[in-house]
């Protein structure tokens, strides 16, 4: 199956139980809607199990970046288990260490600080998308 070279798949963990899961979900949406709308696609992580072979082909069709809220890395593990190995993983809790003044506390509606954190994570995702596309352009598969 051919890899689609001009789009990157972004798979978010969505982690309902943790504020970091909400940050990863919102950051992913910011990338899809605002930062890289023409370069990215997504799929619901639980759809890998609930869907058909078409859904499970996702990471074999698109180079994929997993966005995880915590170190359990459900998006990375789930994508690898059901679809294909992601080319990169971004973990929100690791990015948060760079911005100690931005805490994630809400699981529902985000505060101004949490929105700022989501944007920081989104910018890291967008940079990784650019890197993956650049690598693909050069024909480098790693």
């Amino acid at each position: 199956m051919a890899i689609v070279k001009d789009k990157v798949g972004v798979v978010s963990c969505s982690g309902e139980d943790l504020p970091e899961g909400t940050i990863s979900r919102i950051a992913t949406r910011i990338v899809l809607e605002k930062l890289r709308p023409n370069d990215t696609v997504t799929i619901c992580l639980p759809l890998f199990l609930a869907g058909s072979e078409d859904e499970r082909a996702f990471a074999r069709v698109f180079p994929t970046i997993a966005i995880d809220g915590c170190d359990k890395r459900c998006a990375e593990v789930g994508t690898k288990k059901y679809s294909g190995k992601p080319v990169a993983t971004i973990v929100v809790s690791e990015i948060m260490q760079k911005y100690p003044y931005l805490k994630a506390k809400s699981r529902g509606k985000l505060s101004a600080k949490e929105k700022e954190l989501a944007l920081k994570v989104a910018e890291e995702i967008a940079a990784k998308v650019d890197e993956v596309l650049e690598r693909k352009k050069r024909g480098d598969s790693n």
Partner: peptide, 25 residues
């Protein structure tokens, strides 16, 4: 879900991460 587990029934209801179920935690 958040309205239920945080406001309407905080002592009776809770949630878990669906992706954790997906990966078999």
């Amino acid at each position: 879900m958040y309205e239920v587990v945080e406001k309407l029934r905080p002592n009776e209801a809770t949630t878990i991460c669906l992706p954790l179920l997906t990966i078999g935690d």
